[in-house]
Design a protein around this nucleic acid. Structure first.
Length: 192
DNA sequence: GCCTGGATTGTCT
DNA sequence: GACAATCCAGGCA
């Protein structure tokens, strides 16, 4: 099976979409990676960019589900989210980590490649910033429609792998303002 | 306009 | 385990 996820998959509450994204496949060009770690963000909690209402940056996140919301942080890193919920909700699921299924060599070269020791495949995209680097996602990818009739270049597909029955659920990482909401989901074995 | 701090990572100790 | 790197969004004057 190799089915692109449709708009209806994403147009639900982020708390429902996030755990079901575990095991799905992120595909961009020749690169494919299985999603193993996600976090949910909603406009009703202060850790979210959308908590304080719509701004130029967060316009995409307030838009229709199934779009990519990519933002720049810490002066050097990008983070990729998938917009969820109804149009105007301001929800998203942050993609924190994937394990490469295809195109690992391309990811490795994008990550700086030859410098230093060889990087194990599963370490190539095991963080939000690294994931974006490996899949070449930056601000130009912000607002891409994953469900567009014509492939926008980045999609999420279901290859038949079921989400883990008992994902590890923890508070989110790196949040300072926030609340200890257990809105982070991790695949127990990383689908290894 | 200026100022502050961040949904991180890599490197050094 | 600690911290520097580095740029931009958002808040405030």
């Amino acid at each position: 099976m190799n089915r692109r996820l449709g708009r209806s998959f994403f147009a639900r509450d982020a708390l429902d979409v996030a755990p079901e994204l575990l095991g799905k496949v992120l595909a961009a060009g020749a690169c494919r990676g299985r999603i193993v770690e996600v976090e949910a963000y909603r406009s009703d909690e202060p850790a979210s960019h959308t908590f304080r209402g719509r701004t130029p940056r967060t316009t995409v996140m307030f838009g229709p589900a199934g779009h990519l919301y990519v933002y720049f942080t810490y002066g050097m890193h990008h983070c990729a989210n998938i917009v969820t919920g109804a149009d105007g909700d301001g929800q998203a699921v942050l993609l924190r980590a994937v394990t490469p299924l295809a195109g690992a060599d391309v990811m490795r070269s994008r990550r700086g490649g030859a410098a230093g020791r060889p990087v194990a495949d599963r370490r190539l995209a095991d963080g939000p910033g690294k994931l974006c680097q490996a899949f070449s996602l930056d601000r130009t990818a912000n607002g891409l429609d994953l469900c567009a009739r014509r492939d926008a270049g980045v999609t999420v597909v279901d290859d038949g792998t079921a989400p883990p029955e008992q994902p590890i659920v923890t508070p989110r990482i790196g949040i300072r303002m926030a609340t200890d909401l257990p809105w982070r989901w991790v695949a127990p074995d990383g689908f290894r």
